[in-house]
């Protein structure tokens, strides 16, 4: 399976471990990622706040640079993903916008027809194109005993992306289970990390980060798995600041889901891009080096009281 690949600015340096692990994992799974030549920044959440049309034109340049033989684009960063996807969608929905973006691109001898490139998040491709069954087959070092909190954040699921539930996503849950991890089903998994709020109001940003760390800690997560460099940065690099601000002592390592995949698929710690996280992942990962027997499923506990009322069942419930 071949895809155009749009890394985005963060993956060049601050999220290099995401890039490294994604490339190694893709290679192992037989995915061919061809980097879009001379791609530019997607504008993050900032450009749309300044100039609307230039923002769409900025994003559309990347879509225009995708070679004609590649119908799909893999995007690891959730912010880039939402901007690329939204630009394609709005160009399709609002012909006047499409026309003016087209005129702008033409000034650079480029052109893009809406619908020409299907923009997909890396997680979507791994879970839905490769599939959890195929991944399970490739697992050589299952993450048995590791309690992983899948953290989706916002932009991978909202605005509605069509591949997962915008309020209660489960794709990464299934993937991590396929890797042998114990998935922590905690309620805040699709809440916001604060995005660029660290640059605007530290007080507000720290509170948003604290809520997530607190909730993951309440559910005894060993590690938080994320799908976006912005989420990783906020939860990892600001964890110390949050601890100082609130007098707390969270030490939850924040890894990219591709890093955990790399480990489970038997790749080295270097190939998994480990070591660049600010909150050390060492204590948590020690758990999978020593084989911890699989934890008893707490859900199987019997009702204590005959008077207890039945719980409604959920369609997608873990057996």
């Amino acid at each position: 399976m071949r895809y155009a690949y749009y890394p985005g600015c963060s993956l060049e340096r601050s999220a290099a471990s995401y890039h490294t692990s994604a490339m190694k994992v893709a290679d192992r799974l037989g995915l061919v990622f061809q980097e879009v030549d001379d791609w530019n920044c997607c504008g993050a959440t900032e450009y749309f706040a300044i100039n609307l049309l230039p923002a769409y034109a900025l994003v559309a340049r990347n879509l225009a640079l995708v070679p004609g033989d590649l119908a799909q684009m893999a995007v690891p960063c959730s912010a880039c993903y939402v901007n690329l996807k939204k630009t394609d969608k709005y160009m399709g929905k609002y012909p006047q916008l499409a026309q003016r973006v087209g005129q702008s691109l033409a000034a650079g001898q480029l052109g893009y027809r809406p619908g020409g490139v299907q923009v997909r998040h890396l997680l979507d491709i791994i879970v839905n194109d490769v599939g959890c069954d195929a991944i399970t087959k490739g697992v050589v070092k299952p993450l048995t005993g590791l309690r992983v909190a899948p953290y989706y954040g916002c932009l991978i699921v909202r605005p509605e992306n069509g591949f997962d539930n915008p309020e209660y996503p489960t794709s990464m849950d299934r993937l991590l289970r396929a890797l042998g991890a114990k998935v922590v089903d905690y309620p805040l998994k699709a809440q916001c990390c604060g995005g660029h709020m660290t640059q605007i109001s530290e007080k507000v940003a720290y509170e948003l980060i604290r809520r997530l760390l607190h909730n993951a800690a309440e559910y005894d997560a060993d590690v938080i798995a994320c799908v976006c460099p912005m989420c990783q940065l906020n939860l990892d690099a600001y964890q110390g600041n949050v601890n100082r601000h609130f007098g707390t002592d969270y030490r939850i390592p924040i890894l990219y889901f591709t890093q955990l995949m790399a480990l489970a698929l038997g790749l080295s710690a270097a190939d998994a891009g480990l070591g660049s996280e600010i909150v050390s992942a060492q204590p948590a990962l020690a758990k999978i080096a020593v084989e911890v027997p699989q934890e008893e499923d707490k859900k199987a506990r019997k009702r204590a009281d005959k008077r207890a009322l039945p719980m409604p069942t959920m369609p997608d419930e873990e057996a």
Partner: peptide, 10 residues
Amino acid sequence: RKIPQYGYGR
């Protein structure tokens, strides 16, 4: 259950 943010079933 179609409105997961209301928690019914969880």
